[in-house]
Simulated assay, not measured.
Amino acid sequence: MEVKEKRESTREADQFTLGDDLKRVDEALNVVQTVDGKRVLIGQYTKRLHGLINFAENVVYGEALPYTVEAGPTRKKVRVESNVLADGIENLMHYVELFSADLVYAPQLTLFFEHVLKHPVHLLSPFNRHLPIPDGRMAADVANDFVLYLREQGKKIRIKQRIADWKRTTNENRERLRIYVPALIAKYSRLLVVRLDVNYKKAMVSAEEIQELADKLLSLAATDVMHLMNGQSIDNIIKERETLARVDIREVKKDLEHLFRNMRGKPSLFEHMVGHVWNIEFSRVGGYHIHLALFFDGSKVQKDAWYGDMIGAYIEQVVTGGRAIVHNCNRHREDYGDKWAIGMVEYFDQPKCQRLLEVLDYLAKDSQSVYVKPAKGSQMFGTGHLPDEMPKPGPKRAK
Rank of each mutant, 00 (worst) to 15 (best):
A293F: 08
A293L: 09
L294P: 05
F295V: 00
F295D: 00
F295G: 00
F296C: 03
G298S: 10
S299T: 15
K300A: 03
V301W: 02
V301H: 07
V301D: 03
Q302L: 14
Q302M: 15
K303L: 15
K303V: 15
K303H: 15
A305Q: 12
A305Y: 13
A305D: 10
W306V: 15
W306E: 14
Y307M: 13
Y307T: 12
G308Q: 08
D309G: 09
D309K: 06
M310G: 11
M310V: 10
M310F: 14
M310P: 05
G312R: 04
G312L: 02
A313L: 04
A313V: 01
A313F: 07
A313T: 04
E316M: 06
E316Y: 09
E316S: 04
E316R: 07
Q317L: 07
Q317K: 08
Q317C: 11
V318L: 03
V319C: 02
V319G: 02
V319Q: 06
V319W: 02
V319H: 02
T320Y: 06
T320K: 08
G321H: 12
G321F: 12
G321A: 05
G322K: 04
G322L: 02
G322D: 01
R323L: 10
A324I: 14
A324F: 07
H327R: 11
N328R: 09
N328E: 05
N328K: 08
C329N: 04
C329S: 09
N330M: 06
R331F: 08
H332T: 12
H332D: 05
R333Q: 12
E334K: 06
E334A: 05
D335A: 07
D335Y: 02
D335I: 02
D335S: 02
D335N: 01
D335E: 02
Y336L: 08
D338F: 14
D338I: 15
D338C: 11
D338S: 13
W340V: 01
W340F: 07
W340D: 01
W340Q: 01
A341P: 08
A341T: 05
I342C: 12
I342S: 08
I342P: 13
I342F: 15
I342E: 11
G343M: 03
G343H: 01
G343F: 00
G343Q: 00
M344V: 03
V345A: 08
V345W: 11
V345K: 10
V345Q: 06
E346F: 14
E346N: 05
E346C: 04
Y347K: 10
Y347Q: 13
Y347F: 15
F348L: 11
F348S: 09
F348D: 13
F348Q: 06
D349W: 08
Q350G: 14
P351W: 01
P351L: 01
K352E: 01
K352L: 03
K352H: 02
C353N: 03
C353W: 05
